[in-house]
Design a protein around this nucleic acid. Structure first.
Length: 118
DNA sequence: GCCATGACGGAGC
DNA sequence: TGCTCCGCCATGG
């Protein structure tokens, strides 16, 4: 099993309506800090692998692009919107609201969200 | 087996 | 607030 397979497996666990960042996937894949590998892994994903690659975005909450990717950013955005994810006027996703949180954080410690002005 | 690559992240300016 | 630079390392040629 290659590192890519691990990444694909994790990406497949992202629920509909949620998104994850490359760095997040890397951590879950036990490769903290290796966000680039996640990006490269998704770059290598074949259409028949049924991996929801569109639910993976960068830490800024934006859709990353590549001249050689399979689909284009328009497609990715469309797919996400279909799943109920809203984009801010600037074309970014509110990670604070849609970030996938696979781990059950202690309710009292979730103050990480701190404050935000919508 | 070595070398360039790459959908990123985060610190620094 | 936004742009630049550097680190990280599995893959493929």
């Amino acid at each position: 099993m290659s590192a890519y397979d691990v990444i694909y497996t994790i990406v497949q666990q992202i629920p509909v309506g949620k998104v994850a960042t490359y760095g997040q996937i890397a951590e879950l894949a036990n490769m903290p800090g290796q966000a680039r590998l996640v990006g490269y892994a998704l770059y290598r994903v074949a259409p028949h692998q049924a991996v929801p690659w569109h639910r993976v975005i960068n830490a800024k909450g934006e859709i990353s692009q590549s001249p050689f990717r399979h689909g284009d950013d328009n497609l990715q955005r469309a797919l996400l919107e279909q799943e109920g994810i809203q984009f801010s006027p600037s074309g970014k996703i509110r990670l604070r609201d849609y970030r996938w949180q696979p781990i059950d954080l202690h309710p009292d410690l979730t103050s990480e969200t701190s404050y935000q002005s919508s």
